[in-house]
Design a protein around this nucleic acid. Structure first.
Lengths: 142, 142
DNA sequence: GGAAAATGGTTGTATGGTCGAACCATGTCG
DNA sequence: CGACATGGTTCGACCATACAACCATTTTCC
């Protein structure tokens, strides 16, 4: 059905409108590279993570994660410590500054999100939120 | 509310799960750089476009668009002709091969989309589609 | 009419990002 | 103990974007 194709194009436009282009700026306007923002989000959520775990969550290649973590460290936002139970692995942990940065990003994200939701008709908001959650789950399984 | 924050994190995961990371591969698995795919989509939809128009639609800097179009041309997918009504501008048009490529991408996108929708509970599908459309419009205005 | 400003493009430079392969260390299995 | 798997790092190839400088054409406005 052509209706579906329209929707697919809409999604493509959505991606662009959201600003996922700029690798060096968060879609929510923060001057932080988006991949770093993703990593920060996961680390802030769960405290310390094995680098391999981070690799899975971010859906990256281990080499990309390695470099990413190094960048975080260079900014003073994270630190690497040997994994306690496995001599091969490392544990990545946010520093206090890193946690702060994550918090700032979360706030900016909240603001941006609120601004968008503000443009969604009052009566539709709940539906949109629910649909987005469902879609995310579906996408996650694919 | 923390419910909203959960949702925001879900969106972040969604972005990653969708595979928008890989610059050199379409989220739908096609071996075409994503920015080229976007351009192809717009051009296939409207025939010929002014390069400046393309710049607006893709939300890029004019310099980025210029390079992007050059790449399309190098692949034999597009051609540049002087704009008929403005001596400064150029008109970008898909070649037959370019149109074919666009069609292939659209099909792959359709398949991927269908696969995801397949994981959405039957009764929710219509809602999800509608919500996504609404959200896209809201985002577009921001 | 003509100078000044705006618009459309191109090219160069600086960044940021991803993957895959090669390589090393540690763990696990038989 | 040897073979194979797993976690990381580094290097090379590629793709993407922005911003600034620069040129040509069109508009604007005096």
């Amino acid at each position: 059905m052509s209706e579906e194709r329209d929707l697919q194009e809409a999604v493509a436009r959505f991606v662009r409108a959201f600003g996922l282009h700029q690798p060096d700026r968060t879609p929510c306007g923060q001057p932080v590279p988006v991949s770093e923002a993703h990593a920060l989000g996961e680390l802030a959520r769960d405290g310390a993570l094995r680098q391999s775990e981070l690799t899975q969550r971010l859906r990256l290649e281990k080499s990309s994660t390695s470099r990413l973590v190094t960048q975080l460290i260079n900014r003073g936002w994270a630190e690497r410590t040997p994994a306690p139970d496995d001599g091969r692995g490392v544990l990545v942990r946010l520093t206090p500054q890193g946690a702060e940065a994550a918090e700032r990003l979360a706030e900016a994200r909240g603001r941006r999100f609120a601004a968008v939701m503000n443009r969604v008709p009052e009566g539709e908001r709940a539906d949109v939120l629910r649909a987005l959650t469902i879609l995310t789950e579906a996408m996650d399984e694919t």
